[in-house]
Amino acid sequence: MAVHIPYIDKPNPVTGVTNAKLGIWLFLASEVMLFGALFSALITLRLGVNDWPHGYEVLNVPLATLNTVVLIFSSVTVVMAWAALKMNNLKQFKTYMSLTLLMSVIFLIVKAIEYGSKFSHGISPATSNFYAIYFVITGLHGLHIIGGIIVNAYLLGPGSKMWSVEPERFTGRIECAGLYWHFVDLVWIFLFPILYLL
């Protein structure tokens, strides 16, 4: 007999949450500390030198604005995908989830264009600490996007088979994937003004 782990689909009556939801929030808490440390590093570096460039002088603000809109939109579609499941509508879920994936790929393409133009001008992390922290933070954020794409693609494709067997558990999974995705969006919301607009 397989071991039955309680509270994977229904919330624990005492805490009011499922295992996965508590787990994803704990994970996000640690992510807050990760990006917090990087932002702290950015402030330290900026306070330490006199010739820190303004983001709007050296980075491509219109492209980054486009990316902001793209990411915010993907955040809406992922929460709409969850709401669709809540309304028992798998087809609508698939539409919204595909839109989310499309948006995340667009985000990465725009990012690649941005990186590419920097590299073609011979700019790398070694150029200055402004570019170094820019590449590290946006790069790490990009890795988070890629991670999200993998998870969301799995949940849209093979993972969605769970819907017919354990619908509640599947909805929970989408909620957790959504929480992660919103967090990635949230990081960008801070990253965009701090790196590009100041």
């Binding site: 955040s75 919103h182 801070f190």
Partner: peptide, 9 residues
Amino acid sequence: ASLVALYFM
């Protein structure tokens, strides 16, 4: 960020 956290999350 608050809007995203409060409503989407």
